[in-house]
Design a protein around this nucleic acid. Structure first.
Lengths: 224, 224
DNA sequence: CCTACCGATCGGTAGG
DNA sequence: CCTACCGATCGGTAGG
């Protein structure tokens, strides 16, 4: 590309690059916030990692909170689309569950624990409720409908059978996903270093059947 | 108590109250750090909530990090004692697991996710490793030995039978405990408002048997 | 254990 | 989108 072309692109792209810069900011914010949490990431770090100065951030977002919530809502919306597609496939429940786990392990940068902590401690009530609603609709509901699906087919215990509600099961499932996704520490446990595919298989196995020996299932009430 | 006695106690207790103040600081730090995380809690908040000024903190601890690590090591040591006592009881594995879950739900203020985040982002390597070792020894190992116990009796699948390692199971178990313990948000999910006893029962049930219908266990491979 | 204070850094604004 | 700068607050120290 010649210098003239580059110059032209830069000049003509004035308005266009505004959206591009906004996208860059959100992308940088996603990685930084996911790695260090809301409080530990400074607006200067975000600006620097996408090549602008800190005050320039405020041309695209009102304040730090708006950067955070915009980033989170965007991420949740992307995950929601993917999960809903997986949930509607015509394959066994266990297989859909495994694919959902696999997707989340590969694409969820933020762990729920840190996210909820940041929400309830750093954000305005308004933003809190918006994110919580999006989280429930985008992540929890698709998974809950999958568990409910299995319940209607009689494969999964209903509440009246001493089971757990689909929504609660979905939350616990997401919680376990996060455990693997945010394994920044736990290096002392060698088994934590499995492949993502193996982690997904393991979680599905745990949630469907627990850790009990199959041959022992009937006798467990007496011996365990 | 007369004024003279009080006065005497105060004077004589000079050295004694140093330890008492230290204890007060650790207690305040425990609640504050557990609720808001390392970064969000200021040394002034800790000092104020036990009735001293902020610079006085540094008569008892070298810096903020030392307050945090001292508090965490103390808490882990207490939990370790209780867990080891539960694990050694002569009752069924499932019952010991339920009692461990119950104890942790009632006494664990800190959630693991926030703890590991604070560790890896705010603390010196030296303190990190010390806490991680204490955590593994005090919380993970007792639970892992419980799962291993069930494995040796043939009640729980071993790794060669497609199962999970006892240590990994223990970590996932603790992770689920934390989900309930730190349910600051999730108020949209009504089922989250269960009694602690019900939460403990639910977690044990999930880890031992999963969510699958018992009557369907044998056919699951074909239909799920 | 206090008062007084320091350098660093934060989120955000002024003015161009 | 920049330079320059602000009030507030942080962890920690000096000196008593």
């Amino acid at each position: 590309m010649s210098r003239d072309a580059s110059k032209k692109l830069r000049r003509r792209g004035g308005a266009k690059e505004a959206g591009e810069t906004r996208r860059l900011i959100l992308q940088a914010a996603q990685h930084l916030f996911a790695a260090h949490g809301y409080r530990a990431v400074t607006t200067r770090q975000i600006a620097e990692s996408c090549g602008i100065t800190q005050p320039a951030l405020y041309k695209h977002f009102a304040d730090k909170q708006e950067v955070y919530t915009s980033m989170l809502l965007l991420e949740v919306a992307q995950v929601k689309t993917a999960l809903e597609r997986i949930v509607q496939r015509e394959i066994p429940v266990a297989e859909r569950l495994r694919l959902a786990a696999l997707y989340l392990l590969n694409n969820t940068h933020h762990d729920i624990g840190m996210m909820t902590h940041d929400m309830s401690n750093e954000l305005r009530k308004e933003a809190q409720e918006m994110i919580e609603r999006a989280f429930i609709e985008g992540l929890v509901q698709p998974l809950a409908s999958l568990f409910e699906n299995g319940m209607h087919r009689g494969l999964i215990r209903s509440s009246s059978q001493g089971g757990v509600s689909p929504m609660m099961t979905a939350l616990l499932f997401l919680n376990s996903i996060d455990f693997f996704a945010s394994q920044s520490s736990y290096e002392l446990v060698s088994e934590a270093r499995q492949s993502v595919a193996e982690q997904a298989r393991l979680i599905v196995q745990l949630f469907l059947h627990g850790v009990t020996q199959e041959s022992q299932q009937k006798e467990n009430k007496n011996v365990l």
